[in-house]
Amino acid sequence: MRKRLKLVMILVFLGAVLYYPLMEENEYRLFVMNRGLIHAILASGLVFLTGFAGQISLGQAGFYAIGAYTSAILSTSYGVPIPLSIIVGVIFSVVAGLVVSVPSFNLKAFFLSLVTIAFGLIVHRLIVNLQPLTGGTNGFFGIPPMRWAGSMFTSNMHYYLFLGILAATVVSMYHIKRSYLGRAMFAINDDETAAESCGISARKAKVFAFAFSGALAGLAGALYAHFAGFLTPEPFVFFESSRFVGMAVVGGLRHLWGGVIGGIGLTLLPETLRLPYAGWENYYLLLASTITILFVVFLPRGLGDLASKALDRLWKVEGATKTLKDATVVDDSEAGADDASLT
């Protein structure tokens, strides 16, 4: 009975997600939703980095920018085919991730956050100042859109592409979480010394976490470049980095779905507050940041935690005992709120 309920709910959810763009008449709303999907990809990377591996990055916009500008410049100025330029953008972000991971070897997460801020700001400054290459503050225009069978991507096609990539991201993270790699991440997050005594190289684990989250941010950036068609340094400022961290935290750092929930949720939130009252235009962003603060203060474990607990209650079969298979599922909800590395 309960099992069937679960199946029905999953099917309804899937149907709604797939059907959504077909019934959405408002092109702008679909545009915002597409940005939400891009942010969800990026925020998932932060969930991986911070929630799984215990490393903080307040410079994620830097990786996002590297992916975006690399792909934009290669495809626009050098005629590189888009799929290839996206891949190169991702590679560049990964390389940047590797570089940023170096200070994490010796620094506590907290000091690390300052270094990552510096990284993000340096990238932003480079974009502004390398005008011949990036267009500086004037922006970079004429980025070719993605194409399918000769015609330009429509909003719906963007939606399905981003959704597919996001789904692949979540599935990958799910598999990683349940593999030796995921266990190594959690282990170094809990206790680096003990992890080392188990033969786990904390350095390698951190490098992997930074590279992975850098790759996702770079991918999100490259997708954004071709989706938007132009780039300005604006979306890559420090405050975007903090908004990204906000997404991951509001969604739930310790949840596989945290990045998805937070990324989409916090992208849609200001838009839903964009009410048609005179004089209100200036205030909806204010309300959005207030709501984010309230979430962090009053729901530090995030929406993902809330949702998963509610769903668990819904389809918990009475009297079921944990089997061996269940034993390997990480039960985050019971873990302490304090990460060893963050305190």
Binding site: Y180, R183, F186, D190, D191, T328, D332, A335
Partner: peptide, 24 residues
């Protein structure tokens, strides 16, 4: 292999996962 004077386990991983960490 070693153990610690003050026991150090991975408290966000289950018992069997704690062992699996060392099977990396």
């Amino acid at each position: 292999g070693r153990t610690f004077q003050r026991i150090r386990l991975f408290h966000r991983l289950t018992v069997v996962e704690n062992v699996l960490v060392a099977r990396r």
